[in-house]
């Protein structure tokens, strides 16, 4: 099994993000692997453990992308590749998918590509399906359970109504959700290996692609409207009295 896992470096979810003059301002929280991608690495490693083979971590971005790649290596990925090029400043999901698909093709002989459900910066959750489409491979998204046998993959997908059980022939693209399995922690040995790893960089020229044109561009940022009113505290002599007052407040909102 030749497995690829796509990982992205993001700000941690607890980071402060603000807007000044239409631009984003971050605090200096160190960046991390996108939390969803840890599940993707876990899924990739479990398949490798069950069936043998290799896991290659792939990330598109500037040097910061190495944070996610090194985390994947520390968890147990065999090697890592970064797609990086000065011409790749602002790209949209489709352009990212095109680059990831090109790198997966260049690797050759890939059986399975694992993705996280979504990146917690752009919150799009569309790159896995777009990459699958560009590769012409089946997309098995939102997978909470995966089983591969004799070149066939069987996945339970988490959908609004419960789970849909889907099968396909490899090669295939997966995206993994949280109830797949808790991701393992990096091991001490894994961290040492990751620290020492020299991660190769593939440029647009290496992938044989022109500089992508973004069909979607990000304009100015703003802060979500703040709640102007302070929280109104409801107090009373007994739970019944408090509940009485609170029920009146809720009913007065005319939302029920």
């Amino acid at each position: 099994m030749k497995i690829v896992v796509c990982v992205k470096t993001t700000l941690p979810s607890e980071a402060q993000v603000r807007v000044e003059g239409g631009q984003l301002v971050f605090d200096n929280t160190p960046q991390i692997i996108n939390p969803w991608d840890e599940y993707a690495v876990e899924a990739a490693l479990q398949q490798k453990e069950a069936l043998g083979g290799t896991v290659t971590a792939l990330s598109l971005g500037n040097e910061q992308a190495n944070v996610a790649l090194k985390h994947a290596l520390a968890m147990g990925a065999d090697d890592a590749i970064r797609i990086g090029d000065p011409a790749l400043a602002a790209i949209d999901t489709l352009a990212a998918a095109r680059l990831l698909a090109a790198a997966i093709r260049k690797l050759g002989g890939v059986d399975l590509v694992c993705f996280g459900r979504q990146a917690i910066d752009g919150d799009s959750g569309v790159t896995p399906a777009q990459t699958a489409r560009l590769l012409g491979w089946p997309a098995l998204t939102l997978a909470s359970a995966v089983k591969i046998e004799a070149g066939q993959i069987r996945v339970e997908r988490s959908i609004e109504e419960g789970r849909q059980i889907v099968t396909a022939a490899l090669p295939a693209v997966l995206s993994v959700v949280k109830d797949f399995a808790e991701p393992r922690y990096p091991t001490f040995m894994g961290k040492r290996k990751a620290d020492r790893a020299e991660i190769p960089v593939w440029s647009l020229a290496d992938l044989g692609l022109p500089a992508p044109a973004a069909l979607v561009t990000w304009g100015e940022f703003s802060e979500p409207p703040r709640r102007t009113a302070q929280c109104e505290m409801i107090a009373g002599a007994s739970p019944a009295e408090i509940a009485e007052k609170l029920a009146d407040k809720i009913l007065a909102e005319k939302i029920l």
Binding site: V17, D92, S124, G219
Partner: peptide
Amino acid sequence: GLLVDVTALEVAAPGVVATRPVYGGKVLVR
């Protein structure tokens, strides 16, 4: 082009302009 999970949308030159929450809803982007 694809705009995902938008909360406001208008059609104006040069195209479709949408607002959507990013970074876990901490900020909105056009």
